[in-house]
Amino acid sequence: MKQGIFRILENSPVTDQVMRMVLAGDCSAVSGPGQFVNIKLDGLFLRRPISVCDCDSHKITILYKVVGKGTEQMRTMRGGELDVLTGLGNGYDLSLSGEEPLLIGGGVGVPPLYWLAKELIAQGKKVSVILGFNTKNEIFYEEEFRALGADVTVTTVDGSYGIQGFVTDAMAGKQYSYFYTCGPEPMLKAIYRASATSGQFSFEERMGCGFGACMGCSCKTVTGNKRICKEGPVLVKEDIIWEK
């Protein structure tokens, strides 16, 4: 983990509700896809944890949905600087992917899969992606995933674009060696049941600190209590206990 001051290079809408922000600064603490950053905002007490969508040595890209005070404030930012904790959380383990990994994202769970897809494709893996949204005008990053060279399927709950239904409907016809997913918990649960292989799930929880100090985001797993911010947010399928 590192605390750093990042310059806002870009902050632009990708849909009505989802924004992309590009932050420039010291990214040396970021170790890989699936990690998150924790952002301090003026006038708000707790930091805002947001998953990393893409990262190189000096830039972090995040995609965030405007849902409350913090993200509303972020939406209005034009340039300036942010106090950001980077290198948080235990990300996806790429070594388990096999040759044909499947990546499944739902809504604002899509962003961390972008960097993951990029890395897996760079390793020569044949990557398939299923992106699930409620409706057509909420879709983002379909083209970006295609540009990486991934095989992309989009589902919408209302059928306004792509396959009508849930991501699990699109999973049924896919061959895959392993899977990685991130999205709302009901979706994760459905994938847990529908999946034919092992895989990794990225979870979301309200956090106090984001770096393992407060025990605010703990969950029970097969291998003991884990903190979503520290041992998570990514958990392997065999470790998960569904409580809610």
């Binding site: 007490f45 707790l46 929880e205 309200r206 106090g208 703990s218 969950c219």
Partner: peptide, 23 residues
């Protein structure tokens, strides 16, 4: 002790609420 179910954290003006429950 595992403590309380989540969510255990809430944002407040100039502060926060926690209900970790002695994990």
């Amino acid at each position: 002790r595992f403590g309380n179910p989540t969510p255990r954290i809430a944002e407040c003006t100039a502060g926060m609420i926690n209900a970790v429950g002695l994990q």
